[in-house]
């Protein structure tokens, strides 16, 4: 293998290619019922169809909006709560157990209740996203602030910084990497949460679409939609990485 070919990449793509070929042969020749496993060319055709009809675009946009409406407030509330937990022992002891309980419990179990409270529309999905995201963000912010190097804070104090300045100049930047890791966790949980909530009951969205094609027994469309959701996750995590390098360039990996 030459110096310019990464063996990880080479072997990985060869394995994926081999898998696709076998899948194509098995599916297209009905060795396994193709309505159950589908096959790559059928999936590609379905993807084109879903995109061209506008069905995918409208539903993806609805999911994206629900996601954004839940995730943005989750960042603000999560970071503030995390700061509160880290800076006040009383706040932490009062409320952290509740948060840890929320974190270890399967979030999806709350969805039926949220639907009763907020209706079958987009609000219950935004609330699901919010709850899925706010907990890991708050917990990681707490950890990040606690792990901020004592020496940074002492340096600020030595130069006469106020409490607000210490938070802004030492604690928040110091906590940033751990907060970003929390955001990555939150993205994963929130995406699964919003899609599962839409699958449970909704009027619009990618999860709704998955449910529609599920009941119609259309494996090809399900694969397309799962790919769209996974792709959205990759894009989000990639964006977070770019953001982290911008906000904390001193930590950027070589």
């Amino acid at each position: 293998m030459g110096a310019f070919v990464n063996p990880r990449w080479l072997v990985g793509s060869a394995a994926v290619a081999a898998f696709l070929v076998v899948w194509q042969i098995v599916g297209a020749n009905e060795i396994i019922r193709s309505d159950l496993v589908s096959y790559p060319t059928e999936i590609a055709a379905s993807a084109r169809e879903l995109a061209a009809s506008g069905e995918l675009g409208a539903n993806a946009l609805a999911t994206l909006r629900e996601f954004a409406e839940g995730f943005a407030p989750a960042i603000v509330v999560g970071v503030l709560l995390g700061l509160g937990f880290a800076l006040s022992k009383i706040v932490r002891n009062l409320f952290e157990p509740l948060f840890v309980a929320m974190y270890t419990a399967p979030l999806i179990a709350f969805v039926p209740l949220l639907v009763v409270w907020f209706g079958v529309g987009s609000t219950s999905k935004s609330v699901t996203t919010f709850l899925a995201a706010v907990v890991p963000i708050a917990i990681n912010t707490t950890t990040g602030v606690r792990e901020t190097q004592e020496s940074w804070i002492r340096a600020c104090r030595a130069f006469g910084a106020t409490r607000a300045q210490i938070v802004a100049k030492a604690i928040l930047p110091g906590a940033l990497p751990v907060v970003m890791a929390g955001l990555r966790l939150a993205v994963g949980r929130a995406i699964v949460g919003v899609v599962a909530a839409e699958m449970y009951v909704s009027t619009l969205g990618v999860g709704r679409l998955i449910q529609t094609y599920s009941t119609a027994g259309r494996a090809a469309e399900i694969f397309v939609l799962v790919g769209v959701v996974a792709g959205f996750g990759f894009v989000c995590v990639g964006l977070l990485r770019v953001l982290e390098n911008r906000l904390a360039p001193w930590r950027a990996r070589a």
């Binding site: 793509s13 599962a196 027994g217 399900i222 799962v226």
Partner: peptide, 29 residues
């Protein structure tokens, strides 16, 4: 190492996708 490189992409797919979407296929199987 070869097993690692070959299996890695599939492990990632299982980790990153909303697997519950496949539940109707699982029910049929």
């Amino acid at each position: 190492r070869f097993v690692e490189y070959a299996v890695d992409p599939f492990v990632w797919f299982v980790y990153a996708s909303p697997l519950i979407a496949f539940y109707p296929l699982l029910i049929v199987w």
